[in-house]
Computed example of a mutant assay.
Amino acid sequence: MEPTRTVVITGASSGFGRGTALRLAANGFNLVLAARRGQALEALAEACGDAIAVVTEVGNPDDVEKLAKAAIAKFNRIDVWINNAGVAALGRFDDIPLRDHQRVLQTNLGGVVNGSHVALRHFRQLQSGTLINIASMLGRTPSPYYASYCASKYGVLGLSDALRQELRAHGEEGIHICTILPMAADTPFYEHAANYTGHTLHPFPIIDAEAVIDAIVAAVDAPRDEITVGLPATAAVLSERLAPGLVHRVTGVVSHQLQMETAEPAAHAPGSLHAPVAIGTGVHGDIRAQLEAEAQRSRR
C-alpha cells in the first residue's frame, strides 16, 4: 500500500486553491495550506481533515522556506507543490502606482520562483515530485490594462519551460513541471484585485471555476507540461500560433471596449495587494452576478 501523498497549496484561502484543497481532501491527500489569511486557512484546514494551515506571504522567501519545513515536519515529505497564489492591479499602466506593479510581480512571479526553488530542492532529493504552476491565458495572449499581471504570467510560463529543460538535461524523469492556463474564471479574484480602471471590472469570457479545479486535480495524478482549460483557452492558443498580430489587435480592441466603454463607473479600490481582505473566501466569486446585473441595467 502506497503512503498517503502530501500536497502544498499556496493561495488556498479562496478560489482555485480552496476548491482544489477540498477536492484533494475528499480523495485522502495530506494537505499543507498556505495563504495570508490565517483565520480562513484554519477553517479550511479543519474542513479538510488531515491538513495544516501555514500563514505565508509567498513573495517572502523566508516564509516559503518555513512553509516547506512545516510540511516536512508534519508529513515527512512533499509530493506535489501547487503555486497558486496570485494578485492583480488593473488599469492604465501609468495610472497604477509603481509599488502596486512591483507587488504583483513579487507575488505572482517571485512567489512562484520561491515556491519552485524549495519544491525542486526537495524533489531532487527524492527524485520524484510534481510542481504545478498556475499561469494564465494572459501569459500567452496579452490584454490591455493587465500589464504587470501579463508580465508575471509570461514569466511563470518561461520559468516552467526552463525548469523542464534542466530536468530533461539531467535525466530526472521522476520530476514533473506542469503549468495550468485558465481563462478568466468566476472566483473572488476580481473582488481582490486592485482596480484603477475607473470602471467595474469586465473580464471576458468567464469560465466556471470548477473546470480549472478539475484540471489542477487531474494534474496531481497525471501531470502534463501545459494544460489549457476550456474551449476559449484552446482557441486562443491556436489563434495565437497562427496569427499573433491579428489576435493581439482584436483582443486589444474588444478588451478596451468592454472595460473602458461598456463597464459602469467605479471608484478606485486597493484590493488585497498589500494586505489581505475579509471578503471573498469562497471558491466562487460574484463577477458573473455583477456582469449580469449590469447587462440588465443597460437593457432598461
Rank of each mutant, 00 (worst) to 15 (best):
D286A: 14
V7Q: 05
P61L: 14
Y190T: 02
V217A: 11
G111A: 14
L201Q: 01
P244C: 07
Q259C: 03
H176N: 14
E191A: 06
K66G: 12
A53P: 10
V104H: 02
A85Q: 06
R77A: 11
V277G: 08
P61M: 13
A51L: 07
L90D: 03
A293T: 13
R77L: 09
P142L: 00
A151W: 02
E264I: 07
A53Q: 02
L90S: 07
N27A: 15
V247N: 09
L242R: 06
R99S: 13
T200I: 06
S14K: 07
L157K: 14
M1S: 13
L159I: 02
T179C: 15
L109P: 05
A53T: 04
R249A: 12
E292Q: 13
H101S: 06
D100H: 02
T56Q: 03
E294T: 07
S13W: 00
L291M: 07
R18P: 13
A185I: 01
T4Y: 01
Q257E: 04
N133T: 04
L120N: 03
K74Y: 04
Q102S: 10
Q165G: 13
N114Q: 05
A194C: 07
G59V: 05
E294D: 13
T6H: 07
A71Y: 09
Q125P: 00
K74F: 08
G59W: 03
I213Q: 03
A35L: 05
Q106G: 09
